[in-house]
């Protein structure tokens, strides 16, 4: 009885979704080779219940504009983006842009922090939507299966920057370049403009964060507004996708050699950011 009602509601709900969107989800499913979930726990069906909220955030709240989506090469690719905004909305918006606006649609598999799998609900939510624990082996496996992998090489230092350091790229990790060389994967630099302003953190309470076992506890003045302060500010997002970069060489080379290649990618991301900032007329519209 319960199940019949549940199934009925699910069908009704699905009928209410945009058929074009359902087609896009089918394309993602086809990539899984006939299984309901892939070995990492990604289930395209899990997009359906959350898509109205995600689409609202993407189209109405952050009113995301994309530039250069057509630059994405076919097959496996590493998206290398700047990380900002205290909460990983940037990852979600990049993922949503590839689902809703790219042709053909793609599932973005981003590499998440090591503490995510220990969080209840969040761990399942992330994993069903295709997010994967950021280990080199996982990245290698995904690239071998021709997935689109999103890496934020700045890691937590990038996302938890205070507002005075906005749009200043932090140090990039080298791991992604070794994997790109090893698997011969093109790199597409991505500049995210607009995320820095969603939570302009004036302080990061490091001691409190340590007590709570969290990477950071940002404090932003807009948090003083009751209830609404819990939401990020509706700054307008602009996602800039650069041209694919191809690298060759020994994946096991010295850090200095790899670092030089990483700098090229970092400069490319920075160029996209500078262009995005120059062409942006207003933070909120």
């Amino acid at each position: 009885m319960f199940r019949a009602v549940k199934d009925h509601l699910a069908t009704r709900y699905e009928a209410s979704l945009d058929p074009a969107l359902l087609d896009r989800i089918e394309v993602l499913k086809a990539h899984l080779g006939g299984y309901e979930t892939d070995a990492f726990g990604f289930d395209p069906e899990a997009i359906k219940p959350v898509i109205p909220i995600v689409e609202f955030l993407y189209r109405r709240y952050f009113r995301v504009q994309t530039f250069g989506l057509e630059n994405l090469p076919e097959g496996r690719v590493l998206l290398i983006a700047n990380h900002s905004g205290q909460i990983p909305m940037d990852g979600m918006m990049i993922g949503t842009s590839l689902l809703l606006d790219a042709h053909p649609p793609r599932a973005v598999r981003s590499m998440v922090e090591r503490w995510v799998p220990s969080l209840p609900y969040v761990s399942v939510f992330f994993s069903r939507l295709g997010q994967v624990l950021g280990t080199p082996e996982n990245c290698r496996t995904l690239l071998a299966q021709h997935h689109t992998v999103l890496v934020f090489p700045e890691g937590v230092t990038g996302i938890n920057k205070t507002f005075d350091k906005r749009y200043q790229l932090q140090q990039f990790g080298l791991g992604f370049m070794r994997l790109a060389l090893e698997t011969n994967t093109p790199i597409v630099p991505v500049g995210v403009v607009g995320a820095e302003e969603q939570i302009p953190a004036l302080w990061n309470l490091k001691k409190v964060a340590k007590l709570l076992g969290m990477p950071a506890v940002p404090v932003s003045p807009h948090m003083l507004i009751p209830i609404l302060g819990m939401l990020p500010l509706p700054s307008r997002y602009r996602l800039w996708f650069g041209h694919p970069m191809h690298f060759t060489g020994d994946a096991d080379d010295d850090d200095a050699v790899i670092g030089a290649k990483v700098s090229q990618v970092r400069d490319a991301v920075d160029a996209l950011l500078q262009r995005g900032l120059a062409e942006r007329e207003h933070i909120f519209w």
Binding site: A39, F40, R114, W115, P117, L133, T135, E137, T141
Partner: peptide, 9 residues
């Protein structure tokens, strides 16, 4: 473990 890679060799 929380930080296990998906496929342990």
């Amino acid at each position: 473990r929380a930080d296990n890679t998906q496929f342990l060799t």
